[in-house]
Simulated scan of single mutants.
Amino acid sequence: MSRPKRWYDADAGDALRVVRQSSLDDAYSLQRWRHARTTPSLGECLLYPLTDGPGLGLMFLFPPVLWVLSLPVFDFIAVLQPLTKSDWALGLFVVPVFIPMLVSFAMVVGYLFLFLGHVLVASAMGENDHPRWPEWTPDDVAEGIGRWIWALLMGAAVAGPPAFAYWSWYGGVDATTGVVMAALVVLGTGFTQMALAASLMHDTILAANPVTVVVAVRRIGWAYLLPTVVASVATLGVALGVYGLLYHVSRMWVEAVALWGFWLYALYSGMVVLRMVGLTYHAHAMELFWFRRRPKWATGTRAGRIYANS
Rank of each mutant, 00 (worst) to 15 (best):
Trp253His: 15
Leu267Gly: 01
Ala195Ser: 06
Ala258Gly: 06
Thr192Met: 11
Tyr166Met: 04
Leu264Lys: 06
Ala216Arg: 07
Tyr281Pro: 06
Trp263Gly: 04
Trp263Leu: 02
Val249Phe: 13
Val233Cys: 04
Ala208Leu: 03
Gly261Asp: 13
His248Ser: 06
Ala231His: 06
His282Lys: 04
Ala175Tyr: 09
Gly221Lys: 05
Arg275Asp: 13
Val254Asn: 08
Thr280Gly: 01
Ala256Leu: 14
Ala258His: 01
Thr177Glu: 12
Leu206Phe: 10
Val238Tyr: 09
Tyr265Val: 13
Val273Met: 03
Phe262Thr: 04
Met201Pro: 02
Val230Gln: 03
Pro161Val: 00
His282Val: 05
Ser232Arg: 02
His282Leu: 12
Ala266Gly: 03
Thr192His: 02
Arg251Tyr: 13
Val254Trp: 11
Leu274Ser: 00
Asp174Tyr: 13
Val230Gly: 00
Thr228Phe: 03
Leu274Thr: 07
Val257Asn: 08
Tyr265Leu: 10
Thr212Ile: 03
His202Phe: 08
Asn209Gly: 09
Arg218Phe: 14
Gly270Pro: 02
Asp203Leu: 00
Gly244Lys: 04
His202Asp: 07
Ala163Asn: 07
Tyr268Ser: 05
Leu206Val: 01
Gly171Asp: 07
Trp222Phe: 15
Leu279Asp: 10
Pro161Glu: 05
His202Asn: 08
Tyr281Cys: 12
Thr228Tyr: 01
Ala266Phe: 08
Val233Pro: 12
Thr177Ser: 15
Phe191Cys: 13
Ala207Gly: 03
Val229Pro: 05
Ser199Asp: 01
Ser232Ile: 01
Val173Tyr: 15
Val180Ser: 05
Leu245Tyr: 12
Val249Lys: 08
Ala258Ser: 12
Leu200Gly: 12
Ala216Gln: 11
Gly244Pro: 04
Met201Phe: 00
Ala266Glu: 10
Ala239Val: 14
Trp167Asp: 01
Val229Asn: 01
Gly278Trp: 01
Phe191Lys: 09
Ala283Asn: 06
Val211Cys: 07
Trp253Arg: 14
Val217Tyr: 12
Val217Gln: 14
Ala207Arg: 06
Ser168Met: 05
Gly171Cys: 06
Ala266Arg: 11
Thr212Asn: 10
Val273Trp: 03
Trp167Asn: 06
Ala175Leu: 15
Leu259Ser: 07
Pro162Cys: 07
Trp167Arg: 02
Gly237Glu: 03
Leu196Pro: 03
Val229Arg: 02
Gly241Met: 04
Ala208Asn: 00
Trp222Val: 15
Leu267Trp: 01
Ala283Asp: 03
Leu264His: 15
Leu225Val: 15
Met201Trp: 11
Val173Arg: 03
Arg251Val: 14
Ser168Cys: 07
Val254Phe: 10
Arg251Gly: 12
Tyr265Lys: 10
Ala216Thr: 11
Asp203Gly: 04
His248Gln: 08
Thr280Val: 01
Leu240Pro: 03
Asn209Ala: 08
Ala207Tyr: 00
Tyr268Glu: 12
Thr280His: 04
His248Arg: 13
Val215Thr: 13
Met276Gly: 06
Thr280Phe: 02
His248Thr: 10
Val173Leu: 14
Gly278Val: 08
Gln193Lys: 01
Ala258Trp: 15
Ala207His: 02
Leu236Glu: 06
Tyr224Asn: 14
Trp263Lys: 05
Val185Ser: 07
Gly241Tyr: 04
Val186Gly: 11
Ala165Gly: 11
Ile220Tyr: 06
His202Ala: 09
His282Phe: 11
Leu245Glu: 08
Val238His: 02
Ser168Thr: 07
Thr228Cys: 05
Tyr268Ile: 10
Thr235His: 10
Leu274Ala: 07
